[in-house]
Nucleic acid binder design. Sequence first.
DNA 1: ACCTGAACACCGTTCAAGT
DNA 2: ACCTGAACACCGTTCAAGT
Lengths: 199, 199
Amino acid sequence: MARPHKPILSPDLIYGTALEMIDRTGRFTIPELAQRLGVSVSSLYHHTDGRAGIIEGVRALVAADMVAPDSGSWQQVVTSWATSYRDAFAAHPAAIPLLVGQTVTDPTTLAQYERLADVLHEQAGLSGTDLIVAITMLDNLCLGAALDLGAPSDVWDSFDHDSPFTQALATSSRPVVAKAAFDRQLQLIVADLTRRAAA
Amino acid sequence: MARPHKPILSPDLIYGTALEMIDRTGRFTIPELAQRLGVSVSSLYHHTDGRAGIIEGVRALVAADMVAPDSGSWQQVVTSWATSYRDAFAAHPAAIPLLVGQTVTDPTTLAQYERLADVLHEQAGLSGTDLIVAITMLDNLCLGAALDLGAPSDVWDSFDHDSPFTQALATSSRPVVAKAAFDRQLQLIVADLTRRAAA
DNA sequence: ACCTGAACACCGTTCAAGT
DNA sequence: ACCTGAACACCGTTCAAGT
């Protein structure tokens, strides 16, 4: 059998299945994706730009879960921007290594950055190097937190068993600590930006 | 010819050549490494734990460039820990995607984390969740900055040409901005830790 | 236009064989 | 112990062939 009456494939179906597969298995290969779709490997290339293109499609899917409030102070907007950025990634930790390893071309994600830049410029009054540094700080924070989430490093398992913080590690769970660290760091940055904006 | 009188291969030689190859070409494949060493592919497996093992060896090489001062306030120690962590990665940006994609087992790197934890506990008086959150914050910062350096995202190229910060982007170079953002974020964290330690 | 099978140029890893 | 060649089980991508 060759071409069916109704196409059985579409970019969105491919992207969605890819994300589902990454979430479930943590791996992402073209043959496995094709098999999961009940289709031949070469079929995928009729609808996507190969592996890299599919990953960008997955990025769009993840980024689509970001929410940007259009009311409130710029501090609130920036805070919820960073928080929803992190949450979007956190919902798909296994996808993070794929996503950070590749240059961003997905328009949805790029639009989110433009929106952040606009708010920081229009409402916080930042411009020039200050503006770029601010975006870089927030970008770093989200990226670092996402990576920390995606690849739970064994740094934490390797400490001496009788060290003073091994017990603390045992009591407080990883995700809780990661969230606390992220929230505090974000708060520090926003406070610093507020100081800068006033000056 | 089979076995030579004097071994022509050694773990350190393999790790060093691998790092050199990553620095120069940005890629890392076993066949290419073998060719560069003038040796057969299978030879490498007699001295290393395959690809993952070689990457850990590269990590050790990179981490060896970290310097830890043994005098000064804990603020100075923490600051120079994070700075030299970042600088060590910054010296090999192409290696970063390889390194962050893999669980850390290299003892050199793990020892550095233990040292940071000791300082924060003994001298800054942090313990329990506070201690873990502090390490996580510093870890996130260094990881995010390193990643930002390693994979210069095209986010920056994609903004509108007539936007208010495109000019600023043109004037201030990427590395300068990245360094400024890192330094300020580090300063914010250390100040926050100082506040916490006092309380 | 859409799907397929076969082919291509790669990977990383293993292993018996040589000295 | 150390290096080799051959083999294995994979990748991602392309492309002529079918409807």
